[in-house]
Write a protein that binds this DNA or RNA. Structure first.
Lengths: 238, 238
DNA sequence: GACCAAATATGGTCAGACCATACATCGCGG
DNA sequence: CCGCGATGTATGGTCTGACCATATTTGGTC
């Protein structure tokens, strides 16, 4: 019951050139106090500074891009080159997608994480009292939706508003990634349930509990909602 | 209160070559039913099959490696080349480390995630009743530890045993990554507390509650333990 | 001042070469 | 026949240099 450990990472030979580049870029970020929006030197310049080939620099930048820390744009000007960014959700989404594809993770495990994060978010949103307007807007959007796809889009906005109200950016990123991973399942579930009135009743209960500052009530409402969407034993990949 | 969105990902120009390679490799994994331990074709062979340069293939493989899905080994033989693996924890750890370095995430946000995951794990461990022997071994290791570093190593083993007992590999990976991110803080905290008797008392309460199948008790014991380690207002980066 | 053309800096990509590594194979000696 | 070392070879790792695509900057022209 642990993650499979075959092919146990790289053994400790010499570090690869791009790993050295990675470490140097991290040092530089820390030392220079770089933050989101700042630019890294160009690929050719970094290669010369670090005495490596440009391809090694590019591999390091690709890693940073995968982790949602830089974003590269060609061309010239202040926004070109490798710019520091903060998009952890993309990395998490890719991770879930690939490991689900490898059957290294089951949808059930992802759904467990979703329940955990949603309950926590709802409790904290109830205590902060923020984001109620965004949630209301999403509720209206779901009421007006004409198909499962549109409904789910507003549903995602509703749940992300709750996560954002919790005040924790990491939780928001996890929620984004999880919703991306279960998106197809969500659309199917809406179609399968034959209607959205039950879901909307759940949503309104959640919204009311958060608005009333009732943290336990919000958590319970979330649990009931997710139990409807993911009936026990009905999640593929168990 | 959301993740910063400056430099908003790549706009929708032509996809880059390595992205196409990535998509093709994913397709191939799904179509051929590849799983952990299987080998991908060599870089030169993939490049020829997909009509791209070898550097594009390498960038795609670097992304997959970053996400913990492949592991590359030079040389010859069955374990050489790009082998499918499953090491999501490394990717998560890198993500936390880099975003903490960028001050895009605060330690408080990571600690929130830790509390969430630990409580959930303890509840589920109490219901499954597994892993008690591993937890006991870690307790003994902490008793025998001679310094903060050694103590924390066994402490990590204790908490990972709880996560593993929950039966959710994604949770295990998150726990691993979170512990990696807060490792330095944990060692400092042990030194600062001036002794480990309080921590061990917490651990034994947690262990007893899990052994007794007392899920709420286990969750409460975890919460009390983490409140001791992370006193409110005392976590850097708030 | 407005506008268009050329220069330029940047990432994106490819081709080819060479190195380091580690298994596979072969051949020799016992 | 077995053991073992030398050689072969396939693999990833790295560098170089070239060229393309793109977008800004620059500067000239009206």
């Amino acid at each position: 019951m642990s993650v499979d450990d075959r092919a146990p990472a790289r053994q400790g030979g010499r570090p690869r050139a791009f790993e050295e580049v990675l470490a140097r870029i991290e040092e530089r970020i820390a030392a220079d106090g770089l933050t989101v929006g700042d630019r890294l030197p160009g690929e050719r310049q970094l290669a010369e500074q670090l005495n490596v080939g440009r391809s090694s620099v590019r591999e390091a930048l690709r890693v940073l891009e995968t982790l949602g820390v830089v974003s590269s744009q060609a061309g010239r000007g202040p926004d070109a080159g490798a710019v520091l960014t903060s998009r952890p959700a993309g990395a998490l989404a890719g991770l879930l997608r690939l490991h689900l594809g490898l059957a290294t993770l089951s949808l059930r495990e992802v759904v467990d994480l979703r329940l955990m994060v949603e309950q926590w978010s709802a409790e904290h949103a109830a205590r902060s009292g923020e984001g109620l307007a965004e949630m209301a807007a999403a509720l209206a959007g779901m009421d007006a939706a004409t198909g499962p796809g549109e409904f789910v889009a507003h549903d995602v906005a509703f749940h992300l508003a709750i996560a954002a109200a919790s005040g924790n950016r990491l939780i928001v990123a996890i929620m984004e990634a999880v919703r991306g991973a279960v998106h197809r399942y969500a659309v199917d579930a809406v179609a399968r349930l034959g209607g959205t009135s039950g879901l909307q009743a759940d949503h309104r209960r959640i919204h009311a509990a958060i608005g009333a500052g009732d943290a336990p009530g919000a958590a319970a409402a979330i649990a009931a909602h997710l139990a409807r969407v993911y009936p026990p034993g009905d999640v593929p990949g168990e």
